[in-house]
Design a protein around this nucleic acid. Sequence first.
DNA 1: TATGAATGAGATTTCATTCAT
DNA 2: TATGAATGAAATCTCATTCAT
Lengths: 212, 212, 212, 212
Amino acid sequence: MDLATGKRTLDPERTREGILAAAHEEFVAHGLSGARVDAIADRTATTKRMLYYYFTSKEGLFLAVLERAYSRIRSLEPTLDLSGLSPAAALRKLTDFTFDYHADNPDFVRLVQIENIHFGRHLRMSDAVGRLNVTVIELLGDIIARGCREGAFRHAVAAVDVHMLMSAMCFYRVGNRHTFGQIFAVDLDRPELRAAHKQLVGDAVLRLLTAD
Amino acid sequence: MDLATGKRTLDPERTREGILAAAHEEFVAHGLSGARVDAIADRTATTKRMLYYYFTSKEGLFLAVLERAYSRIRSLEPTLDLSGLSPAAALRKLTDFTFDYHADNPDFVRLVQIENIHFGRHLRMSDAVGRLNVTVIELLGDIIARGCREGAFRHAVAAVDVHMLMSAMCFYRVGNRHTFGQIFAVDLDRPELRAAHKQLVGDAVLRLLTAD
Amino acid sequence: MDLATGKRTLDPERTREGILAAAHEEFVAHGLSGARVDAIADRTATTKRMLYYYFTSKEGLFLAVLERAYSRIRSLEPTLDLSGLSPAAALRKLTDFTFDYHADNPDFVRLVQIENIHFGRHLRMSDAVGRLNVTVIELLGDIIARGCREGAFRHAVAAVDVHMLMSAMCFYRVGNRHTFGQIFAVDLDRPELRAAHKQLVGDAVLRLLTAD
Amino acid sequence: MDLATGKRTLDPERTREGILAAAHEEFVAHGLSGARVDAIADRTATTKRMLYYYFTSKEGLFLAVLERAYSRIRSLEPTLDLSGLSPAAALRKLTDFTFDYHADNPDFVRLVQIENIHFGRHLRMSDAVGRLNVTVIELLGDIIARGCREGAFRHAVAAVDVHMLMSAMCFYRVGNRHTFGQIFAVDLDRPELRAAHKQLVGDAVLRLLTAD
DNA sequence: TATGAATGAGATTTCATTCAT
DNA sequence: TATGAATGAAATCTCATTCAT
């Protein structure tokens, strides 16, 4: 209801987005099984019935939230302009971007964790996500090929593998911060630590390719 | 109840362990919120009532399962005899062990993911876990110190940080195998890939310390 | 569900009232802790689920029952027309009304006892009840003021205190009838006794104000 | 277990009393249905099994607690020496005692309320309580008879009825203090109010008998 | 496109009590 | 006289989903 006109919303796109935003929060806060449809509806301007109208089921809603989260990174990647840089500089810049994205978006990390807890069951149903991150692999592949050709890189590691190691370090630091922080009595959210780790991850990736 | 004799068990330790084993399976399969107390009881020789008798609540049971999982790695670590090896060889051996442990124990990885989804809330209540993994850090610290002293390592990275990067790569490969496998159309469980990755992770860790 | 037509009710007000009536009976019969939600549902045209839909919890339901009981007396008080009577007659009439209300509504007495057993915890959460019985105090205050002015009353006792003593006698006779009856081998429900006590309570209140 | 000797208690009477004291507290705090056998056992030096050993059931335990509470007042009554006083003074003293006993023993008031909520079901099973409070009635009867004979009292009200009114006022003030206090925004526990009410109740009782 | 009312099945947890020793 | 372990039955409450309008 629009309070001014007293009429209903009638803006499907806004309604959809409102539901997605609410669902995002609830899923991030409580996981898939832990999230409550009622709670999502309560965070929304519409009613519970609409969730089903638009997304069929709780799981359908989760898939939509997940796709939305993945598509957001994708939209940011083209921003990176690596063409004018040396292979080493390009690789460092890409690693930095990946590091920052994870550190700045713990919600994304959590959603991915949740999806893995559920065996990737939802992603498997999505055609959208299939076409995703391929871009990153191509980017990385170009850098590595160039680095090898120019002699800057000594080891021709496969792009997917480099991407995996890079993501692993960025992801773990955020996703496992509660258990890791607890066990080793470290606060991984501290800014100084973040800067140090960023440097470290960049070093690790670079040295993997350049070390003799 | 022993189904054969119709008599009661009266062996608290066995009853406890039976419940823990059943709960482990259910939590690993469905997460904390997704797990059903009824389902756990069904996997057990006792009744649902006993779960509460011994563990007070579903969450109490989860904590017990988690502590049990953590204490299992710890009991394996002393097995490693690194004293006679060169710093580089010792580091490689430790990395290999970590890699294998994660690859062989996806259950452990899942439990830790679940705990992180729940903000480490349960671990925070455990005094047991606090005294854990310190051993690994000491082990690592010794290796690094020795390597630096002997000139084998050029970079004196902090032991906790090395441990984090090492764990990250080992953990991610297992924990995120569903989403990663989906998006990049890779089957991370294939033996050849496992061997290649093991080598790669070892290289990455070593080069981080040795590269010029 | 309407058992005859098999159709749903869709008359929230009737559903609510049906639940309240059933809950009233169960709480009166067994107290708050002793009452069973299942038993309440069984006395109802709806299901247990609806009790929670409308009243959130067993305690929420109890509060609603309590408020309903209080609001019923209030609605009866304006019925009394004391304006034309002498102070003494007015006081006697008010006492008689109070006496009869308690004697005729042991359910109300029980609900109040139950609430006191629970430390008035529910009433404290009610804004509705706060605005209640003030009317009685005003009524009483007027009578007393008039009686003092006209010389009929010698003692200017505070209205709240008169109300307390009056209520006490009317309440105790009903609320403690089981223990009192047992100990002194008296059946307080006998009509003759009721009449005698009504007279007595009226005398006690009047003499408190008029005696020299 | 006696911590010093490491031996078991073996003092049945102490064990019994310990259980009764614990049960008293729990019943007073939560009512009969609300009380938890486990909670009672926890307040005790013995185990839950002993409660059943000594008192057969939760209800048996409640009855024992109730009888214990009643027998305590009885043991105090003989303390009062009314023989040398004038009828009026004796009546005032008895009323004062009754008032103070209730005000000082809200636990007793609560237990009686609880028993009434349960329709006096337990007291009915007790032979002990039958022989109780008769003493009070005899005391009162003597005072009234004397007062009438000596011309101090004008109204020959039955002793049981006087006792009822007297108890009512004393009991209500304590037993209904939560609801009454809530509705009329009064704190009945305040010392000044207590003193005022004590005077008032004494006046009410006396005037009932003496007024012309 | 929207909605308030309704729901069946099942979730977690509790309770007074008894058994085996 | 004592006890730790065990329990069946039932209690309160929740959940994703659908109906009637």
